[in-house]
Design a binder for these strands. Structure first.
Lengths: 328, 328
DNA sequence: GGGTACCGTCGAATCGATTCGATCGAAACG
DNA sequence: CGTTTCGATCGAATCGATTCGACGGTACCC
């Protein structure tokens, strides 16, 4: 009878309750005192009409805030394969949630253009400005930005881990074990990736790059198979994620190599690899701290306060996957 | 000098360009013809002022559409550990992207209340209405909803796979191999979970439930270790994801059991498990088709057209992880 | 009893765009 | 030359709320 059942607005509720629009608004927001009986009349009218609550879009237009922050994670298909992403996301979500802010995961739409979202702030994780076109749009609109392990960007707060230093410490560990020829399996090009490679090259300037692939078992295993099949010309392989390292260990064993007897393998991140019966030597980064620092910085920015850059320490964890270099 | 540098609005651009507000709007949207010289004057003025383009919030308020659809995935910390989620997400993102719609991943905030987002449509994946409070809010606001493998819900289009039938086919395969006592490792309670369990019980009414855990290696391995350590009272373990199945295989071997000689293990999903040197017997579900059907249904609903429910077939893939029951 | 606070309510302005309908001028037509 | 038509432009209404300032009434204090 009444067409496509228009959704009632606050104005409908107000007139049904016999109060003014402003009073009805106050009854919902509680921003100014409203008498108990009036509030009840408004709420009853709302229920009777099936009013779904204040329209968020309208509220945001007026208030200029949406209560939602986004986190850009790069391409959906790879962003979540890496177990290192999860503890950080958890921590971010915890801190923001406690502050009453919603968290939105933004997969990189890559090909298609994402419409601009009403966000109070954005975290760019790993994926830097170059791989995220909307960056400029949000920046121009004055949306506070935190860049995690990305290139410096004026106006944005950065959260970093000591990728380069950590990588160098790991390299030195290998050098101490007598390794001279090492190769590395890298992730796809990114800022922390370049830093880590630089750290490795501080100690092994000639380190060979086997190839780059996402942090998932299948890709790493394929690359490792090709490389190791010819008989490794190296005594150690440094990987840029633990998932890759685990894959390399598995592949080396399949080819009859003993780890670490014939080949030392190291990872990065410090995430559990329960399917491996060997503790990896790796560089442990404080994933939850990273998320915590990120969210805290963003909260400060959203509140209009300055947020200093953060650099988090990493720690070498020596496991059972690295050992003395096989003598020539 | 000019305070906190207010972001210019379309009105600023219009007056700078010497045209009316409406003309400036037309120059950006192209919804009605504007002379070339006028358009250029507007665009130049916009550039000069640093105008970041039409404010999306204001546009959405007027148009009633946001160009963004959300997909609810359940708790962040578990939703992405399952490799089965990714191909589906990919497919959804592809179809929606091609239609010019943005995709938003909504991690379940669980504890904290997520502010309502301006969405044109929502996909509830696995997580049903019960685990997603905002469901009712969006439904009340008339947002089109597609429920993937969730309980039926009036007004929402559902996309399902034949979980129950597939599970039953797998069970029959085991029965044919002579298995009589089987146990199952389930995922956390959910709609498809119950269906699959029902399918299994069609054939093995007494099947024992070892326990429920997320689809990640660590959790499954822990459960399997406890169960198998006492000497398995069963000849086959049916898992509800391939990741779990792979973990059970690994754990069984660690305990000296041969798979499938001593124990048959089956999975569900049909995703690659490259770190396992054994092809799993599993129920393959068409993950990409599922995503495709989901996105297509949502597009129809957003366009105001009806979208019929969809049920997708599954297929038993017999691998090398199941074999004849060890005779008593 | 008169003056001051304060509480509850209301009207109107506002956020930043889109869009309907009207207007104006120039081109096309009979 | 008068009329119609069409395209470009503009003014004003609109989307659905929040919020500022004003107003009237009651309670309280001296």
């Amino acid at each position: 009878m009444d067409g496509p059942t228009r959704i009632p607005t606050l104005a409908d509720v107000a007139s049904a309750a016999g109060v003014s629009l402003s009073t009805a608004s106050l009854a919902f927001s509680g921003n100014k005192p409203v008498s108990g009986t009036t509030r009840q009349r408004v709420l009853d009218a709302a229920t009777a009409l099936g009013y779904p609550g204040p329209n968020p879009i309208a509220r945001h237009l007026r208030q200029g805030r949406s209560g939602v922050v986004g986190i850009a994670l790069g391409p959906i298909s790879t962003a979540f394969r890496d177990p290192a992403a999860l503890p950080m996301l958890d921590a971010v979500s915890e801190v923001l949630g406690a502050a009453g802010l919603g968290l939105l995961l933004m997969g990189d739409s890559d090909v298609h253009e994402q419409p601009l979202l009403p966000l109070d702030g954005i975290v760019y994780n790993i994926c830097g400005r170059e791989s995220w076109p909307a960056y400029d749009d949000y920046a121009a609109r004055g949306v506070p930005i935190v860049v995690v392990e990305g290139p410096d960007w004026p106006g944005a707060t950065s959260v970093d881990v000591e990728s380069r230093a950590g990588s160098a410490v790991l390299a030195r560990h290998l050098a101490d074990l007598g390794h001279e020829r090492v190769a590395t399996l890298t992730l796809e090009p990114s800022h922390p990736q370049r830093e880590r490679l630089a750290g490795l090259r501080e100690v092994f300037p000639e380190a060979e790059v086997i190839g780059a692939c996402p942090s998932d078992t299948a890709s790493a295993q394929r690359l490792a198979a090709d490389y190791l099949a010819g008989g490794p010309g190296v005594t150690a392989v440094v990987c840029q994620s633990d998932v890759q390292a685990a894959a390399v260990v598995a592949e080396a064993r399949r080819l009859g190599l003993d780890v670490p007897g014939d080949l030392s393998v190291a990872g990065f991140d410090g995430v559990p690899t329960p399917w491996l019966d060997l503790e990896l030597t790796t560089v442990v980064q404080p994933l939850r701290d990273k998320g915590h620092a990120t969210a805290t910085a963003l909260l400060a920015l959203v509140a209009g306060e300055p947020a200093p850059d953060v650099v988090l320490p990493v720690e070498l964890r020596v496991g059972a996957s690295t050992g003395p270099a096989r003598s020539a």
